[in-house]
Design a protein around this nucleic acid. Sequence first.
DNA 1: TACTATGGCCATACACTGTATATCATACGC
DNA 2: GCGTATGATATACAGTGTATGGCCATAGTA
Lengths: 251, 251
Amino acid sequence: MSQGDKPRRSGAAQGVPAVDASPIPAPPWAGPQARRARRSPRPPLDRGRIVAAALAIVDADGTDALSLRRLADALHVTAMSLYWHVRDKAELLELVGQAVLAEIEIPPARGDWREQLRDVHRAMIGGFLRHPNTADVLVGRARYGAGGLALFERILSILLDAGFAPDAAFDAYQSLYLFTLGFMATSTRTPEFVEAQRQGVLYMLSLPEDRFPSIRAVVPAIGRRSLEEQFELDVDIQLEGIAARLAPVEA
Amino acid sequence: MSQGDKPRRSGAAQGVPAVDASPIPAPPWAGPQARRARRSPRPPLDRGRIVAAALAIVDADGTDALSLRRLADALHVTAMSLYWHVRDKAELLELVGQAVLAEIEIPPARGDWREQLRDVHRAMIGGFLRHPNTADVLVGRARYGAGGLALFERILSILLDAGFAPDAAFDAYQSLYLFTLGFMATSTRTPEFVEAQRQGVLYMLSLPEDRFPSIRAVVPAIGRRSLEEQFELDVDIQLEGIAARLAPVEA
DNA sequence: TACTATGGCCATACACTGTATATCATACGC
DNA sequence: GCGTATGATATACAGTGTATGGCCATAGTA
């Protein structure tokens, strides 16, 4: 029984959450044997430090630059050491995404449901824009960590409290969520992406006016707003649409 | 002068568009020497066939499965042969994305601006859902090929014709575009993604009701609509919001 | 204090990726 | 026929994620 199983990764290694990407129902942080002390020169490398270092690399050079060896180097450790704490790179990326979400602090409720949703989304996009290179992580692998769940719960509760039926609340959430994802996807700030965007605008300005009159007419409007302002306006559009199509009848 | 330059890739190799990702202003298809005939058993491998084969692989197994060697094998060719026709993998992915966009046929105009936008977006999402695994390509690298430009031009012209000011037209477009991106990002149909989504729902259903009452109340509403219906509703919400916030005053 | 178990880290290796470089084969213009 | 572009290939390299197995210090037990 206790023979074939090497110290292999996965499962409840050390005192760290076992569940795959769902640390909520049983949050055994500070688990059984509460992290025994150590006095070796470098601290003993846990998920927190790994994820923090990974996020730092992503912030600096984008997700493509995040390789396990580079991450290990940053932690003064070999690549394989990471596998003791993390199942594989996919899980690592998930944790990075969750770290970004966890940083977001949900503002207290004030005002009607539209004000509240505006506030929550402002906080979200603010938190995201502090780590704009995490877009593909957040957009691609949609897994909810603790932070994501809290946001989800909060948004839904605002809607339900406002009298939305559950179905309508979900539809409203979906609408806001999808648009937020799209916004994040286009807000990457890695140098290549920014340059590509710039080139795109230049290119569109070079299009023949007779075949693309509308593009030519509108392109000058691009980029006249900051990302924050842009987002603010778009949230407003969402809310207006939600109010018109999904909100409960009563005033 | 004509010495140091090997047949190196890039530029106006063969009769194929030279511009990096912008085949519009000078579309030299059927270029100078209109593709001379050949009767070798296998035809001589052009961008079209490469992109088609790549798209087939992506449709079958997702973008992660698209490696240059596998693509080359499918074409009965070595990996390096591809580099004659394509600068690098990034360009290949761009071309795959553009191929998906190019497949979309823009419906004729009928009805008011909202009807028209609905029709165009229906066509878009229909075309996309025929290649749902191309989501990250379409979402990640936002480069406009011929098809993308045509869509862009069309949507803007609908808005301008409806009396939107250029700034407002761009804002409206942006709103629709971002949300469409988000929708595509969450519509990947690769097995892992679908499974992850399913797990997510199950997980949320297992959350403690006292801490996540809203989630528990709403989760049953997930997935009761098809993707097409979902999209339809969300477009409606966008349009409603756009009408309320951006549309010109006149009726 | 001696002994063992094990948590945590590392060395090595493997299959696979994208791509640089150089070479080779065919077809066409002269 | 010859040179020259056009296109495919062979080889090689650095870098990726990760499977496997070993190493060592500490914790727990006697």
